[in-house]
Nucleic acid binder design. Structure first.
Length: 718
DNA sequence: CGACGTCCCCTTTTT
DNA sequence: GGGGACGTCG
């Protein structure tokens, strides 16, 4: 078959082996830059082309919408097939689809809304208020974390163990929160998964249907799956079907949000995996970069074992720069980038990475001053913006006025004289009548109760909107919601409202685009769900592009996490200091350091040709000057791969604060590197106490910050 | 109701 | 240092 040869052309032996494995469960350990996505999509294309499965008979799961889209794009480029109706998507997207199709069996209204993180948090706050829980003792964010991690473990409130008063209270809140969600007909992200898992588990008919349909299940980024996702896959696979899992344990960087690398080992056992293929040939980086990455990751004990290699040459050495402070580091980076740019490297092909978002500010400042165009990834996304959420809340109310979350968001925005007191009364009334806030409001207005002026207006407004929205297009509905509500007028009067108006206009555009795309696309599967519900779902599940698109003519700034899956000609990794990268918080979590190291591994393997690693002797952190020492990850790279560049600029101490008195009683200057017999190398941070009882504070990096009595501490200068 | 002040905290993030 | 949340005052 000629076309078959076409799609398999150019694969290396291992890739070919993975793509053409027999129909048995398989684990593909795909190292960074080893052609993972290509293997996954070619496998799908090959299965379809050789007639082993129809496009409808396979299920492909990814973590991000971007990855799902990418897969479909590549697939259609390989095969002239119609991807409509294919089950390719994110865990959440697929679960949503499942729940929409079987909402009755799942105990949800057909128009159930999806709560995003912000909605969920406010829902939790509401529950806690109704229960009179002290939010000092139970910070809502922590409660949310608790609830989500329970759900991600597959546990309902009644299944969670609670050994003390505190955890019992948490469990109680969890239970009440779930009850509230059920009452309001909404589901948070974790709920989508748990609910569909329970549905499949409980309903043998539905389970059987999907099990016999999806003979082939393929999972991307398998190392990032959490317990519940794994259980879900297992349930769907049943006894008959095969699971084709692609992942890289060395790139597991999401344990902090519930990812379980252990799923890879469980998978091998539970599915009696015979086929394990390692893709170790890297097509991205030169060997100096790759060897550095290998050397770093070799320090982790908990690995399945894999070593990347390349047939490309050594390439350039890895450059390491030691700066005096953070501003000087930023300046150096900017100068280098300007130079590279002059030499013809596209700015869009250069990435500037950091461990935490807070670090971007100082870099941005330097870039701005140097007039270098850059783009920062991270921060608020389109559908998460306040004005967009307000507009969507009005639309949600048009669809279903009993949506309390939506109602609370906009009942007094723009302000219409419904203050905290009237709201409280409304909530009481709703509780007494055990109905939604909207129902309670309608009743109040009907009774002609005093104090309902604003309420009267609101009820009238929503009713009017529902009337007007009948039979008009989606885009027109957006238009209507933003004007009748007074949102637009409100922002027009605001000084800084221009951007917001623009965003609201863009929402109309998004609605038009969604409508057009929808007519060509998956119409059959989403049944008769109305377009607006679909659009609102889309808004929750796909909050807008977050990850970088390569090829833009601007320097790319992002966290290391955000850089996963991308590659650049040149990569700068900044802030390589103990406490920052590896982050000090990580030291307290078990396995934290290994995860930081994997993060470093991911960062290093983003670079094709040139890699810069930099750190600063001191930096402003939380409004204080902090003296740090070089990250241990730098020590883990063999010197033979490195080229060390040290700052030649004169040390510029921070003029504002000079904590250290310059007098003779202080043997070491602040910032001086010292050695201690037990703690090793460190940096002097400050002095405390008086001359009689002088305490010196030293940052020993991995040993932590120590306060030592000057009299006894045996420190020597290095 | 909104403007302004004060306090507190402060990884990483997708859906 | 700086953003977000909350509280007070005009």
């Amino acid at each position: 078959m000629q076309t078959e040869q076409n799609i398999l052309t150019g694969l290396n032996d291992k890739q070919l082996e993975a793509v053409t494995l027999p129909n048995q469960s398989a684990l593909i350990l795909a190292g960074a830059g080893s052609g993972k996505t290509r293997v996954l999509t070619t496998r799908i294309a090959w299965l379809i082309q050789t007639g082993q499965v129809s496009p409808m008979g396979l299920l492909a799961v990814t973590f991000t919408n971007k990855a799902a889209k990418e897969m479909l794009t590549r697939l259609t480029a390989m095969l002239p097939i119609n991807t409509r109706g294919m089950w390719v998507g994110t865990f959440h997207g697929l679960c949503n689809r499942l729940l929409r199709a079987h909402h009755r069996e799942a105990g949800l209204p057909s128009t159930f809304q999806i709560l995003d993180t912000a909605d969920q948090l406010s829902a939790i706050k509401r529950v806690m208020k109704a229960m009179n829980v002290d939010d000092e003792k139970y910070p809502p964010k922590q409660v949310m974390g608790y609830i989500n991690s329970c759900k991600e473990e597959g546990l309902r409130a009644h299944q969670v163990e609670a050994y003390d008063a505190h955890s019992q209270k948490l469990r109680e809140i969890y239970e009440a929160y779930d009850a509230q969600c059920n009452r309001e007909g909404v589901a948070d992200f974790a709920e989508l998964l748990l609910r569909s898992y329970e549905l499949l588990e409980r309903d043998a008919r539905i389970r059987g249907h999907y099990q016999s349909r999806f003979r082939y299940i393929l999972v991307d980024e398998f190392q990032d799956t959490n317990r519940l996702q794994y259980l879900w896959l297992k349930l769907l696979a049943g006894q008959e079907n095969s699971l084709f899992a692609v992942g890289d344990d060395d790139q597991s960087i999401y344990a902090f949000r519930g990812a379980r690398v252990g799923n890879m080992a469980d998978f091998q056992r539970d599915f009696a995996v015979q086929n394990i293929v390692k893709l170790e040939e890297n097509y991205r980086s030169h060997s100096n970069i790759l060897d550095a990455a290998n050397a770093i990751i070799a320090h982790n004990k908990d690995r399945l074992g894999k070593n990347l290699w390349t047939s490309a040459g050594k390439g350039e050495p890895v450059r390491v720069y030691e700066a005096y402070n953070d501003t000087e580091e930023a300046q150096y980076i900017v100068d280098e980038i300007s130079m590279l740019h002059r030499e013809g490297i596209e700015l869009g092909d250069i990435a500037l990475l950091y461990r935490s978002n807070a670090q971007s500010r100082i870099l941005e400042h330097a870039l701005f001053t140097a007039n270098l165009p850059y783009r920062v990834y991270g921060g608020l996304r389109f559908f998460e913006r306040a004005e967009i959420k307000h507009a969507l809340a009005y639309m949600r109310l048009i669809a279903n006025a009993n949506d309390d979350t939506a109602l609370l968001r906009v009942i007094n925005f723009p302000a219409r004289g419904i203050g905290a007191r009237s709201l409280e009364q409304l909530q009481e009334a709703a509780q007494q009548q055990s109905c939604s806030l909207w129902q309670a409001a309608v009743n109040k207005v009907g009774e002609g109760k005093v104090g309902g002026k604003g309420l009267d207006g609101f009820v009238g407004l929503i009713r009017h909107m529902v009337d007007q929205a009948y039979g008009i297009s989606l885009a027109e509905t957006v238009e209507l919601a933003t004007t009748l509500s007074g949102l637009k007028a409100h922002y027009q009067n605001e000084k800084e409202g221009e951007d917001r108006i623009e965003n609201l206009d863009e929402l109309v555009t998004a609605a038009v685009a969604f409508t057009n795309q929808d007519f060509g696309n998956h119409h059959n599967v989403d049944e008769e769900l109305d377009l607006m519900t679909q659009f609102l779902n889309h808004a929750s599940l796909e909050a807008g592009e977050h990850q970088a698109e390569v090829g833009r003519e601007a320097l790319q700034l992002m966290t290391v996490h955000a850089a996963k899956g991308l590659e650049f000609h040149t990569v700068f990794i900044s802030g390589l200091e103990e406490g920052l990268f590896p982050h000090e918080q990580a030291a307290y979590e078990h396995g934290g350091l290994e995860e930081e190291r994997r993060l470093m591994y991911v960062a290093v393997t983003r670079a094709r040709q040139r890699l810069y690693l930099s750190y600063a002797q001191s930096r402003m952190l939380h409004g204080q000057v902090r003296y740090g020492i070089a990250s241990r990850f730098l020590d883990e790279i063999p010197d033979s791969l490195l080229k060390r560049l040290n700052s030649r600029a004169a040390p510029k101490p921070y003029s504002s604060v000079s904590v250290a008195p310059a007098s003779s009683g202080y043997p070491f200057k602040i910032g001086q590197s010292v050695r201690h017999a037990k703690f090793g190398e460190g940096v002097v941070v400050s002095y405390e106490g008086n001359a009689d009882n002088l305490v010196i504070k030293v940052n020993f990096g991995r040993e932590g910050m120590k306060s030592l009595a000057m009299e006894y501490a045996k420190l020597e200068k290095i």
